[in-house]
Each structure stands twice: as structure tokens, then as C-alpha cells.
Design a protein around this nucleic acid. Structure first.
Lengths: 185, 185
DNA sequence: GTCTATACCGCGATAGAC
DNA sequence: GTCTATCGCGGTATAGAC
């Protein structure tokens, strides 16, 4: 939901949501027993979307750097298409676990461990330079998310629209190039 | 302020703050005309602290990779000492400019541009591999901040305390090593 | 299912006694 | 400077008419 992403959980009232949907506040509470539950369902929906999209990329048959690039691009595309969602996830991570039904970390964990195994394999094979795979993945996740979650900050710093096509292309190119430089030199 | 960092602006009431300080809500409003102003002063104080600390590192007389490492370490130290502050900044970036007196971006801009010039110089000299300096800085900022701002997420993913001494050391080592690999191979 | 009406609470903020 | 008392507003949630 756009509103939760832009204004946070506490900053979004049921009135705001109802107004956006076009019904009354009470009618909203007829479908969802409480605000927390509504938020939880919205969030869960988005997490599963993300998970599905990432999963498609992860099972790509590429190997070595090509596979890493496919996954990076898939993540970038999804975040670019769902910048609101990035803000929502960041807020959830910031808030810790408050008013959060599902634990994102545990949902993502299987895929995370699979990625770790992939990097360990490639590093052992000498395809990639040695780095701690878990740290590497968190650095990558931070590099992808920060551009979108801190868009307002980036805009102030660079005087560009971070979500415009040119800026997105430049950001994508940099992230890919940067990780390639660090991993395969 | 710890509360703003943990619960956000909307999530923190004047009652909470007053309780922490040990006075009544009204007494708080005697010192600060409004909640926004209180928040603004807290935030401004922290920004200037950060700025001062970064400034010390930036004027270090080192050159090439050594200087980059000094600055990275200074940033890491400050964030490790003020993890709450990281959360506050992230929230500010997420909220855009709402209820924000000072614009962080414009405050940081002079130092940002100075850093850009430094990287351009080193890249032209061949000390560093070629990357877009602005993108590089934002990637670095994201790599440093995300560990602290998303600590709850990291904890769920790695089953460690991200702010414990061992985890901090490992994170610092990785970030330094990763950027060195990308920049100087 | 969606509405109106309403109860109840906590918020930010003001006024005035001490 | 700090308190109590109070206002007005907007929040979640419930009950009942249609």
C-alpha cells in the first residue's frame, strides 16, 4: 500500500486508507478486524511477490558472474518497479518487529542460504575473489535498497530525480560494475 | 534522542519523552514550543556532531587508499557509537522532508563534493579503478548505514547480534576489504 | 456489505495556579 | 519551571439501521 510506504505505519490512518479506496473507515474495519491485521496482509502479499520474482532469477541456469548479474538485475528491476515496497521493507526493518505479522528474515532465509552456498562454490572454484558471502549479500542488498529508500536524500545530494529513467540506468550500471570489479576484478 | 530513533516521529509521543526525562508533558512544551521544533533541535545537534567527526577524518593528510580507509573507518566508528542516530537519519530519508527543519543533504553537500573531487583525482591518477564517484559514495554510505539501520533484519538473517563486538569487527573488515577490492583490485 | 452514529482513548497544545 | 486541568482533534473500534 502506497500510504504505508510513504507515511509509515503510525503516519497512516484508517481514514486515509478508506479515503483512497473510496469507502468509509468503518467499512474498512468490516473487512479487516484491525489496522495491524490489514497491514500484515498488505505486507505479506508484497513479500510473496518479491520472493516469487527473486526465485525466478535464482533458478536461472547461468553460472559464475553471469548468474550474479542476472540476480542483481532482477532485484534492481523489482525494486525500480516497486519503490514503495522498498520503503515499506526499510520501515519494517527499522521498526524491528513491531506490528509485523510475518518475519521477513525467516521467509528470505532459505534463499539467502542458497545464495551463500552459490558464492562459496564460486569462490572455492576461483571464479570470484574471496569475500565473506553473507556480508557480501547484505552489502548488495544495502546497495540496491538504499537508492530507492533514501530517494529523497539522493535527490537533494545529486539534484536529479533518482527514479527517472536516466538515473535508474546510471545506478544500475554502477552497481553491476562495482560488484563485478570487487568480485572478478 | 533514543525514542525518535526507535519509534519514529509519529511513533513517539510527548508523553513518552516526558516520562523518559522525568517531567510532565506540559513542562516539556515549556522548553520547546512544539513537537516539531523539539525534533528539529535534536536532529540538528546530531547532524553537526556527525559532520564534525567526519570532517576530522577528511582532512587527514593521507592519500590514495589510505585516506579512503581512514574515512571509512571514521564513518563506521561514528555509526557504531551512534546506532540510534543511523536509524534517525534513515527515517528522515524515508520520510522525505516532512517535519524536518534542516535538510541533511544540503548540509552534507560540501563534504560530498570534496569527496567526489578526491576520487576523481585518484582515478585520473590511476590509483583507483574507474567508477562514478557520486554513485560510489552513495554505495559506500548505503553499505555503512544498512548494517545498523536494519540491525533487526540482519539479526534474523544471520542469528547474531549485529551490534556485538565480534559482528562489528567482521562487518568493518568486510566493508573495507570489499571496497579495496573494487577500487584497487 | 456499506453506511451513520457513537464510545472511548491518547495525542498535541493552552491556560492558570503554585 | 513545573504542575493540574482542560480543550479540541483525530485515532481505533463497536453497535445497529438499511
Amino acid at each position: 500500500m502506497v500510504l504505508f510506504a510513504a507515511n509509515g505505519y503510525e503516519g497512516t490512518s484508517l481514514n486515509d486508507i478508506a479515503a483512497e479506496v473510496g469507502i468509509r473507515r468503518s467499512s474498512l474495519l468490516h473487512h479487516f478486524p484491525s489496522k495491524q491485521i490489514l497491514y500484515g496482509e498488505v505486507f505479506e502479499q508484497l513479500v510473496s511477490d518479491w520472493f516469487a520474482r527473486l526465485g525466478d532469477a535464482v533458478i536461472s541456469s547461468d553460472t559464475g558472474w553471469d548468474k550474479a548479474e542476472v540476480v542483481l538485475n532482477a532485484g534492481f528491476d523489482f525494486f525500480a518497479d516497486n519503490a514503495d515496497y522498498v520503503c515499506l521493507v526499510r520501515r519494517a526493518a527499522l521498526d524491528g518487529s513491531t506490528h509485523l505479522t510475518v518475519d521477513i528474515a525467516s521467509v528470505l532465509r532459505p534463499m539467502f542460504e542458497k545464495s551463500v552456498a552459490y558464492f562459496e562454490r564460486e569462490m572455492a572454484a576461483g571464479t570470484f575473489r574471496r569475500h565473506d558471502p553473507r556480508q557480501l549479500l547484505i552489502t548488495g542488498y544495502g546497495a540496491l535498497l538504499s537508492w530507492f529508500s533514501d530517494a529523497a536524500f539522493v535527490e537533494g545530494l545529486l539534484d536529479i530525480d533518482p527514479l527517472g529513467p536516466d538515473a535508474l540506468a546510471a545506478r544500475r550500471e554502477h552497481v553491476i560494475g562495482f560488484f563485478r570489479a570487487a568480485l572478478v576484478g
